[in-house]
């Protein structure tokens, strides 16, 4: 695989991102290394080629935001909004992630080895997120579709006003949000969990140590008894 190295100390981020936005046919299969990220915002946003990008350090806000097809590895931590609105591809954060990790993501896989901050997977629309540590409060708020796997604990108000996303939690949940409840994990959900654990480097973790949470579906179906509240 051809490897290209960029040094953010020497080259402006805009030029690197513009290179990464080039014609997919010239990028596909390439491996790009970005050195000295030093917490810069918007590194590797809007990628749409089957390219591998390795960020050698801590990244700032919106790292790998809006990702399509690409595989982005951050060898450090990220600020708010990593892989925000991802459509497909794979984003792997080896450190921790700040708030709103994977917000509104439609597809692809986001793996965070450390903790994630508040509002992780907020308004999730179909992507898969695996957090090796714990997540902060209000995670999966209004999550519509997709899966959030949490190997550690969850903060307050998990899954508030959730639609059809699945939340797998191994540790403690401080509190569940409105209309979020524990579900029975059937074979279909268990299969999804096993697959995600294996794809995120947690194949050795016992899937039976997780609890499944989802929507009680009392908020988004019309119910005549609630007519006064609508």
């Amino acid at each position: 695989m051809e490897t290209l190295t960029f040094d953010l100390d020497k080259k402006p981020l805009r030029e690197i991102n513009q290179f990464l936005h080039g014609d997919a046919s010239t990028l596909n299969g390439k491996s790009i290394v970005i050195e000295n990220p030093n917490g810069a915002h918007n590194i590797a946003v809007g990628l749409k080629a089957d390219v591998e990008v390795t960020i050698k350090g801590h990244a700032g806000y919106y790292a790998a935001g809006m990702n399509q097809l690409a595989k982005v590895v951050v060898e450090g931590s990220v600020g708010s909004g990593v892989a925000e609105n991802m459509m497909s591809g794979h984003v792997h954060v080896k450190g921790f992630a700040s708030n709103a990790a994977g917000a509104t993501a439609n597809g692809g896989l986001l793996v965070i080895d450390g903790d994630a901050g508040l509002r992780c997977a907020i308004a999730l629309k179909g992507a898969d997120i695996v957090v090796g540590g714990s997540v902060g409060s209000f995670s999966a708020f209004m999550a519509q579709a997709g899966n959030l796997v949490i190997l550690g604990d969850a903060g307050e108000g998990l899954g508030d006003s959730i639609y059809e996303a699945r939340l797998f939690v191994r540790g403690k949940v401080k509190s569940l949000g409105a209309d979020c409840e524990e579900k029975v994990m059937g074979p279909e959900e268990r299969k999804i969990l096993v697959d995600l654990l294996s794809r995120s480097g947690h194949g050795d973790v016992d899937p039976d140590s997780f609890k499944l949470y989802g929507s009680a579906r009392t908020l988004y179906h019309f119910h005549v008894d609630n007519a006064g509240a609508y």
């Binding site: 030093n38 917490g39 350090g57 801590h58 931590s77």
Partner: peptide
């Protein structure tokens, strides 16, 4: 407020960085 302001500090690679 952000890591950008810590990146230059001496031996930052061996510091415990957390939120």
């Amino acid at each position: 407020s952000e890591f950008r302001s810590l990146a230059h500090l001496p031996d930052i690679k061996n510091a415990k960085v957390f939120e």
